[in-house]
Write a protein that binds this DNA or RNA. Sequence first.
DNA 1: ATGTCC
Length: 472
Amino acid sequence: MKLTEETPYRFRVERHGDMRVPGIVFASRALLPSGETEKPLEQVANVATLPGITGASYAMPDMHWGYGFPIGGVAATDVRRGGVVSPGGVGFDISCGVRLLTADLTSGALSPVMERLMDGLNRAVPHGPGRGAVWKLSGPGEMTAILREGSRYAVERGYGTDNDLERCEDHGAVGDAVPEGVSERAVRRGLGQVGSLGSGNHFLEVQVVTEVHDTKAAEAFGLRADQVCVMIHCGSRGLGHQTCTDHVRTIDRRMSRHELRVPDRQLACAPVDSPEGRAYLGAMAAAANYSRANRQLLQAAASRVFADTTGRPLELVYDISHNLAKLETHEVDGERRELCVHRKGATRALPPGHPDLPSGLAGAGQPVLVPGSMGTSSYVLTGVPGGAAFHSTCHGAGRQQSRHQAARATRVGELRAELRERGVVVRGASARGLAEEAPAAYKDVSTVVEAAEGGGLCRKVARLVPVGVVKG
DNA sequence: ATGTCC
């Protein structure tokens, strides 16, 4: 793979084969995939062959191998020029994302009640694979409301306030959702999981702000040094997974009818303006809304525990997803164009003054929430004017070991002791889950964030470190 | 990520 260094944080994959545009990788030399691990770069090149792709096939510094697209991949296709949508460009966990909350507390006030707080969160926040949820649904009718209205429906039912919706991407619900596009089987899988964390790298963490890099933006976000926060990272559970599976299958079957050929079958796609393309986007929006409702319900559950234990409820900073395709208008070559922007393991990062920001955030930009690996640290970033990759940045630390490798390499007892020594109270984690999520399995999130900032994708606002974690 | 294979 021929890579050209454009800047210390920006590399170009030169066009070759059927690539329609170059690949642009935002990373440092140290973070670049190499040797055996060049597979994610091949995926960047594969994505560059998609019909209608505009600008470049982008990769964020936390990139690693994924289904079809790399995780950390961003690709925009031009809807009016035959642009396609590919479920592999969103991933199986549709609208997986992060919600950040603040408590009006400093770390010192937390320590005396810490164990009790974590016990409360462990009981109130369903976690782990399979069932267990905040809501027991009355039936499929109520599911339709969730799929259409997302966080708005949860708020309507008393699990939050209108102010919360101001601080949610898309005001709490993706428009044009088509609940009928979510199969019966997907609904069945989702019925018992509304308001649950799941497993893998999903978590709820109690965190403390240890560094403020941008005082003004932090203030606008409601963050200050030594502030207690809660970060929730979860997605659309079995419902989103099944929705992706269903639509990959139908789109794959129709590929030849649209005379579409891709270098990897996992890049199955359909023109945005086709029955299959629109059907996927409608179902994806519905699954995204399930994920939004999920995080709204977990906020309510956690807030209640905080209010009971500390006397302080939680307030929403922002909710943003990092697995989604969105129809957005961007200026390309001096022209306004309608693009289908795929962000898979990549986060939207709107700059200050962007019209889609709520008034309270207009001056600061959109909060970008970047969870680090378990027990290390997380970042709050914001968008910058002229941000590349259609206003996108990284989404996390990025795996460097497979789950299998990590499970084999980790001594769970030592890891637990290490976390305890660092002052992190752990609840609910299975031994296997803990091993797979060991910090050694991930890149250093600080290095990733440095590269994203160096590449001109975003700006640092604050760094948060965990003091408590609930995991599946 | 995921009832880690319908």
